[in-house]
Simulated scan of single mutants.
Amino acid sequence: MTPEESAAPGRIVLLTTSHRVAPGLLSWPAWQTLQEADRVLCADTAHPHLPYLREAGIEVEHTAPDAQDLVDDCAGGRTLVVIPTGGGEGDQRLTDSLARLAGSGRVQMPALELLPASYDLPGARLLDLVQVMDRIRRECPWSSQQTHKGLAKYGIEEAYELVEAIEDGDRTELREELGDVLLQVVFHARIAQEDPEEPFSIDDVAATIVEKLIHRHPHVFGDETAETPEDVKAHWLRTKAIEKQRDSVTEGVPLGQPALALAAKLTSRVRTAALDVPLPTGTGVGYQLLALAAEAEAQGTDPEAALRAAARAYRDAILAAEGVER
């Protein structure tokens, strides 16, 4: 070895992996680096990638050297690859120690590289949610006793809280409330797995909605075209009608929804189906509200949202009159 070669600082590669990706599925740059490395180190003897590394003929040393040991061993231009324990995303203790050494100015540091060996796909964190929910269902005294009926009220509450976050325009609150709504879906799906007669899982739920979305968007996944939102809505209603084979346009309209929303949905169904069904006449505020809801819907206004906005404005006026700051 020449003096120049012995003085070369070498290279430390910190390999990061995702536990949400199947073991052994590593990027090509990661495989190349592992094959060419002088040493591959991993303190975790149960690391999920180890069997695949052994199969590829890569020798892994089960040791956890400190930052100074790594720097010393890189002398002579050697390349060391460190695989974090547990298949995680890095060893914070080690990276901090290497950073302190580099900042000290007392040692000649090797090249430091953070190499992602596997990546999360969009939606990968949903796998974490499914795993967490599965454990909570098994081990939590409260969650393990819940039923679809018992959770129903929470679904309604979370939906309203989501609407409120949207109306407030609070992005942080919106993200949290979307998570709460998502939790309801995952929770119900986990309970459904235990049904003795008709079990289904979160994967079945996702597969059902994926199939529905593809089928109802032939202009995206098929040969049909849609130039306007109205064309898209026509596609949706046409395919939905074929799927459902309903005897009445009122089928599928939940009567438990807020009254203004119910009135708007019914009048929308009638208008879309080109039915000649006059609004019922009668005395009292109910019939007046029905007429107003029908008029708003025909004009493209959501009467429920409009009334909520007006009510919120009234709430703000009350607070102002009371001298209460929001």
Rank of each mutant, 00 (worst) to 15 (best):
R11N: 03
I12M: 05
I12A: 08
P29C: 07
C42I: 03
A43S: 10
A46G: 09
P51G: 02
P51Y: 01
E59N: 05
V60M: 00
E61P: 03
A67L: 07
Q68I: 06
D72S: 11
G77D: 08
T95A: 12
S97A: 14
A99W: 07
G105D: 09
R106N: 09
V107I: 12
M109K: 02
M109R: 05
L112D: 07
E113V: 14
D134M: 07
I136P: 06
E139T: 10
W142T: 15
W142R: 14
H148A: 14
G150Y: 03
A152C: 05
K153E: 10
I156P: 05
I166G: 11
D168R: 15
D170G: 09
Q184D: 13
I209T: 10
G222D: 13
E224R: 15
T225R: 12
A226N: 04
L237E: 10
L237G: 07
E251R: 03
Q257N: 03
A259T: 04
K265I: 02
V270I: 13
R271W: 04
A274Y: 01
A274Q: 08
L275M: 11
P278G: 00
P280K: 00
G282H: 01
V285A: 11
Q288Y: 06
A291Q: 01
A305V: 04
A309R: 11
A313G: 12
Y314T: 11
